[in-house]
Computed example of a mutant assay.
Amino acid sequence: MKSTLSKINAWLHLWLGLISGLIVVIVSITGCILVFEEDIYKIIQPFRLSPPEAKAVMLPPSALIKSAEAAFPGIELRSLTYHGEGESAEVSFHSDSTLWIDPYTAQVRGISDHEDFFHLMESGHTTLWLPVAIGRQFVIYGTLVFGILVITGMVLWWPKKWNRHNIRNAFRVNWKAKLKRVNYDLHNVWGFYPLIPVVFIIFSGLFMGLGWVMKSAYWVASGGKLVPMYYVPSSDTTQVAATPLMQVLDQVWKFSVAELADHNSPALILGIPDEKDESVYVYTNTEGPHYQIHYFDQFTGRQLKGTGMDVDKFNEANGGDRLRRINYSLHVGSLWGIPSKIIYFLASLVAASLPITGFIIWWGKKSKKLKPAIRTSKALA
């Protein structure tokens, strides 16, 4: 019985690996590149940084929006992001261009285009550069298959006996061996070391991609609660002439920084409404997973009540809401800054190598079986 289960496990590992191998390679390599996206941007696009002068204070949204509208007249604004001390504010339009403004002087620092190298990598990571409806499904279910491969791989890796010889073979690459053995060790041994970050990456990816995974994880983490419905409150259109929008945005910004943000954090996203019944939304504490969304009436500035997984303070939210808000950071490796990003980079690199080393192992075994058959057929001829 045990032998039969082992054979089934090995068979699953082989064929699921062959089926999903190319997907895993593409998603993992692009993931490696995207890990340091923000850090690289700050090097190649220095206009994203705005070192403040002594005693400089950040300007309100109306001042930054005025500069943005002067730079891009006639283009409708979408949102304004304050990234934090020493960083430029980001103005997004209903276009592919993003404007970067010094939040202390309102001077335009630079313009970036959404359609760049990292956008190309993101497209490969999420859709394999295929049409979204098709490519996204390939990525999601390829990730699910990779999760099964991790389990079957662990079963294959697990030493039958925990003696010194088996432990050495399970945890060490024999670099002095022949190339075939080195390749086997790279697949078998290196596949074990990044296990924890790889599991986090797979789980968080499936959390974002599969509704049943998200709902199940939320139910467990929240102690048996269902995912709350999202409700975005509307502005009171009977108060259209109450207060100019720019004045409301300034009031909302000041209130958000002073009263709503933890540790008085200036990092927030301010959504600019398109329609008269829309509310102004504000994401506070956006520098990490402690973000929280708030809604305000665009005509009066009155705070409104919405529902969802990110409307409560992080410290007051249930386990499911916290998991939802920490999930993206868990996926991209930004929870602990550069150290965790390095770990995720190496883990993704190893993950990308596993289908390649696995294919080489399979091809070697296949070739070995074919050679006797070729010799026999030649002899019969």
Rank of each mutant, 00 (worst) to 15 (best):
W363Q: 05
F146N: 06
L179H: 03
S97A: 13
D39V: 06
N264T: 00
D262F: 08
Y283K: 09
F117I: 08
P289E: 12
W212V: 07
L349K: 10
S50I: 03
S204A: 12
F117G: 11
P61S: 04
L99K: 10
A267K: 06
Y231F: 14
G306K: 02
V145A: 15
D321C: 05
L49G: 00
I360V: 15
L22E: 01
K7W: 13
V199G: 04
R375K: 13
G358W: 15
Q292P: 14
K160Y: 08
V27G: 02
W15P: 02
M208I: 05
I151W: 02
D250I: 09
F314M: 01
P73S: 04
P51K: 04
G337E: 11
D116W: 02
N174Y: 09
S67L: 09
A106N: 11
A242Q: 05
V257R: 15
G86N: 01
V257W: 15
L346T: 10
K160D: 12
W190P: 05
N163S: 09
W157Y: 06
P159L: 00
S123A: 05
P197L: 03
K225R: 13
R164F: 00
P60F: 12
A177Y: 11
C32W: 09
V108M: 10
D277R: 07
Q239T: 07
V252I: 12
T126F: 07
L335P: 07
P266Y: 13
V350A: 11
I75N: 11
I374H: 13
T300N: 06
H119E: 14
